[in-house]
Amino acid sequence: MYRVTIAYGHPTDPTAFDEYYTTTHLPIAGKIPGVQRFAGGKCDSLDGNPPAAYFLAEIFFASKDDAAAGFGSEEGQAAAADIGNFATGGASLYFSNEDITNP
């Protein structure tokens, strides 16, 4: 599997971020071709300190080539362009191969 992780910084208006993400952005991003699995959630901490990011989204593809094709597609470009509409805390993208899994 090949994973794209998007770390969203803390937004200026968390309620607006949550609403836009679920009602507008997810339907756009859900059209990216080649997606095998999606997972996302708000960040938390175990020690009570504020987490470094507000929300993490993980998008899984069968291969790096599939990820490149998905994000290079019209649907992938639309999803990327939409990030600026709600991610007031910024967003960082990380690309990684799933080299190790357990179990």
Rank of each mutant, 00 (worst) to 15 (best):
P11Y: 10
N97Y: 08
G41N: 07
E58V: 07
A68C: 01
Q77Y: 02
G40H: 13
P50M: 14
S45K: 07
D47A: 07
F60T: 09
S73D: 03
Y2N: 04
T23D: 09
T23I: 00
D65A: 09
A91V: 14
Y2F: 13
P27R: 06
P33W: 06
A91C: 08
K64I: 06
F71G: 10
R3D: 05
A52Q: 13
G89S: 08
F17K: 14
A80T: 04
K64W: 01
T23C: 05
K31V: 00
E75N: 04
L26M: 15
G30W: 07
D18P: 05
A53R: 12
G34W: 00
A78I: 05
A52Y: 07
T101D: 06
S96I: 00
T101M: 07
A39V: 02
L46D: 12
D65P: 00
L46K: 07
F71I: 05
A87M: 01
P14C: 13
S45N: 14
H25R: 01
P27N: 12
G76M: 07
P33Q: 00
Y8D: 09
D13A: 15
H25E: 08
E75F: 06
G76H: 05
T24Y: 01
F61A: 01
T24M: 02
N97S: 11
P50T: 13
G89T: 12
P14V: 07
E74T: 11
G48N: 10
A57E: 13
D82Q: 02
V35T: 04
G9P: 15
G30H: 14
G9V: 14
P33A: 03
A53K: 12
T22F: 02
S96R: 02
G9T: 15
A52L: 04
K42H: 12
G30T: 10
K42S: 14
K42E: 11
E19I: 04
I6M: 06
D99L: 04
N102E: 06
G84L: 06
R37F: 08
A68Q: 09
H25D: 02
S73F: 03
T5F: 03
A16M: 10
E75G: 10
S63M: 00
G72K: 13
A39E: 10
Y21D: 14
G48S: 11
L93N: 09
A67D: 04
F86H: 06
K31E: 14
S63R: 00
I100Q: 10
N49Y: 11
G90Y: 04
P11N: 04
D66F: 11
D44W: 12
P33H: 01
T23R: 14
F60A: 09
T88Q: 11
